[in-house]
Design a protein around this nucleic acid. Sequence first.
DNA 1: TCGAGATCGTTCGGGTCCAAACTATCTCCG
DNA 2: CGGAGATAGTTTGGACCCGAACGATCTCGA
Lengths: 164, 164
Amino acid sequence: MPGQHTLDETESQVATRLAGMDLDFEAMAVTANLFRAANAARNQMERTVLAKSNLTWTGFVVLWVAWIWESAETREIASEAGVSKATLSGVLTTLESRGLLVRKRGERDGRLVTVELTTAGKRLMKGLFPEFNKAERRVTRGLDSAQLPAIAEYLRQITQAASD
Amino acid sequence: MPGQHTLDETESQVATRLAGMDLDFEAMAVTANLFRAANAARNQMERTVLAKSNLTWTGFVVLWVAWIWESAETREIASEAGVSKATLSGVLTTLESRGLLVRKRGERDGRLVTVELTTAGKRLMKGLFPEFNKAERRVTRGLDSAQLPAIAEYLRQITQAASD
DNA sequence: TCGAGATCGTTCGGGTCCAAACTATCTCCG
DNA sequence: CGGAGATAGTTTGGACCCGAACGATCTCGA
């Protein structure tokens, strides 16, 4: 759902408006399109896959991390999901109240909390993830599939550079 | 600030955990790393550039769109910024109360609202954007600069595929 | 052993974020 | 004309989002 300006028009307006300034326009184009792509993909997947299960994006990611790792500590979930521990705390409360996961206080270290999916949570992920993957396939369908691993690698480099 | 698992460990755990399922793992790697990269870059730029001006990410993007287009209609800002009109309405109220922009009711069409930066808003953007661009350069520093335009193009394709 | 400092998850306050409902305005057809 | 329907921005309610402050727990050196 494009606005009333096309992407090309926007980028050309940017170039005109900022002409003469000492800027890295190529870096700008990469980051601008990075955020546009992530946003568009997220909105698309929220609407087509997550909405029918009444899950938010973050809720889904949290469930996904706990599912993949069988059982995960909260600080790790926060890191993987890309949210602060404060945010995660609230999201966990929401998901726990819906019976999708449980918190368990660490036995050896009383400060830690680990998260485990309930049976309902596992069933939900098992049914939902293949659909989610279809949506992942859909948003990457414009790309040459031979290039996919290289593109993933470029994105890892960005994550790396932004993480210190 | 990586979690306690490295990115490699995570991807290998994913592969093990989901082995045997009929999934597109390459599409998965691209989207997963897309969100990781966007998130890491956003957090980095919020902390290093935006925080000192007490601006949120969305607030900055909204100011940026209005700045680039001199004056913009709200539905267009919402589309460019990737937020709903409901969200934009609140963000505009925040920025307006801080004296960075003004709303103007459309003269020909009384339903429309256009947004213009105040002098203070323009001054802020003029000072902030070069710094923002430095951060953009920073998060792309791990990439071969000859590849930058191609990478921007890949990301445009994802946006395209996710937009209908 | 015992307390200073580190680390963990939660709480708090204020700002996004969205869908749905709402008000105001415009369009256009009968 | 006049009103039915389309369109624009705002409000509402509930969830996310973060930094900072907090209480609980652990560690480790004197």
